[in-house]
Design a protein around this nucleic acid. Structure first.
Length: 410
RNA sequence: GUGGCUAUAGUUUAGUGGUAAAACUCCAGUUUGUGGAACUGGUAUCGAGAGUCCGAUUCUCUCUAGCCACCCCA
């Protein structure tokens, strides 16, 4: 070996997925796939590399300038590892706008990169479900989207009281504060300020507000919106509790109207789980006519944290069904023959070719997490009858290629 | 980008101004065809560098890394 060993740590802020971790990821996204496809969404994908230009205009400047992995390629192009999926999705939809059938229901599960300081619930690479519904102008889109989001959480075993869905409308905010919004430029600034209201404390907030508008802050009096009300009503009727939060705005600039966000209600993990909203004007970036769209993104890190706090993650189970141990080298062929006929039956079979002591091999089978073990030696090679041992119970059943016990038949 | 905490075997943790301990794991053996047991032995330049000191893993500083909070967001 060289003098200087390489570090075994993964790169800052990204994760290695050992089989136990991958098992959880597969569980989470497997379940999500089922639910989302159940609502008629189809899966798409794209490369994590995009031209930086895609993120310059609509994502909010801070994200592109400070929070992305950006570099120049050998052809002198500015390239960025995607920090979010929506621009890519919009680009893909814009490109084939005329060929696609609307309403369009698309979902993807992709990794995202953000150059940030890692901490709980936030890494530099995370995987995210992205769900988008294009081509529905009315509140049916919001209702379906929030229903789906809620269904996903419930399918993981979360209860209604474990999470809280908050909803708001940016359009309504704009209307409510119209008198003091002298120019349009102020609106995004106001959104940011409102977003921070709870965090910064009333005094500081009112001071900032006065600086901005030269007028004292007033609670929105006529915050009445029939559409928002209707959404809340319909969702309520379906048993989905949603709360109006007049200060919810969310970070991305491209949201045009309704935004929503889901919070974990557990005091130990009380943070935003995920959110989304309506973005009706993103396609114009690509010189296309706009298409109404509602979508949300759901990250694996925060979701996993939440499921952990409610103890809703499954125990690891190996994908290996049967672990074959070979007693002596000369019985290898007999073991391989058995393995291949079991594999043909659809069972996942691993063979140990170390020829170590049978006890050690079984120990390894146990460590691997395989539920069943078969040892192949002189007796088995001659009679072609095998003993199938269930490791958790020690129970032994007879096994031959013709007769596979029900327990492991697939 | 700002701040706080931490850094000892593969892992989780003790501990001391006089070069380190335990549990589990791993490897080898007691045991050349059936595991989760027992016993024996092996495995650490105490994160890196510098300083104080007769002597530093222990005190100080710098760096690095990790965790957490802020910012922002998922």
């Amino acid at each position: 070996m060289g003098k200087k060993s390489l570090s075994t740590e993964s790169y800052k802020g990204v994760r290695d997925f050992y089989p136990e971790d991958m098992f959880i990821e597969k569980y989470i996204f497997g379940k999500i796939r089922e639910t989302v496809e159940n609502f008629g969404y189809v899966e798409y994908g794209a490369s994590p590399l995009e031209e930086s230009e895609l993120y310059r205009q609509k994502s909010g400047e801070e994200i592109v300038n400070e929070q992305t992995y950006s570099f120049k390629d050998r052809g002198d192009r500015d390239v960025t590892l995607r920090p979010e999926m929506t621009p890519t999705t919009a680009r893909m939809v814009a490109k084939k706008r005329r060929e696609l059938a609307f309403p369009l229901r698309w979902y993807s599960i992709t990794n995202m990169f953000r150059y940030e300081r890692p901490q709980r619930g936030r890494l530099r690479e995370h995987f995210q479900l992205n769900v988008d519904l294009f081509g529905v102008e009315g509140i049916e889109a919001e209702i379906e989207t929030i229903t789906l989001a809620s269904k996903i959480l419930k399918d993981f075993g979360l209860k209604e009281e474990n999470f809280e869905i908050q909803i708001n409308s940016r359009k309504l905010l704009e209307k409510a504060y119209e008198p003091i919004l002298k120019n349009k430029e102020l609106f995004p600034v106001m959104l940011r300020l409102l977003d921070k209201k709870e965090k910064m404390g009333v005094d500081k907030f009112e001071l900032e507000w006065k600086k901005l508008f030269k007028e004292p802050f007033e609670e929105t009096k006529n915050y009445e919106c029939p559409e928002l009300k209707r959404i809340l009503e319909i969702l309520d009727k379906r048993g989905i509790k949603t709360k109006l939060n007049p200060y919810l705005v969310r970070g991305f600039d491209y949201y045009t109207d309704i935004v929503f966000e889901v919070f974990d209600t557990n005091p130990e993990n009380r943070r935003s789980l995920f959110g989304g909203g309506r973005y009706d004007e993103l396609l114009s970036l690509f010189g296309e006519e706009n298409i109404p769209a509602v979508g949300f993104g759901m990250g694996d890190v925060t979701l996993k944290n939440t499921l952990e706090t409610y103890d809703l993650l499954p125990q690891y189970a190996s994908s290996v069904d049967i672990y074959l141990c070979i007693v002596e080298k000369e019985y290898t062929e007999a073991a391989d023959t058995l393995a291949s006929s079991l594999r043909e039956k659809g069972l996942n079979v691993a063979v140990n070719y170390t020829y170590r002591k049978i006890g050690d091999q079984i120990k390894n089978a146990n460590k691997e997490g395989a539920p069943y073990v078969v040892c192949v030696g002189k007796k088995e090679a001659e009679t072609l009858r095998f003993e199938l041992k269930e490791l958790s119970t020690g129970k032994i059943e007879e096994l031959s290629t013709e007769k596979i016990p029900d327990a492991i038949q697939k």
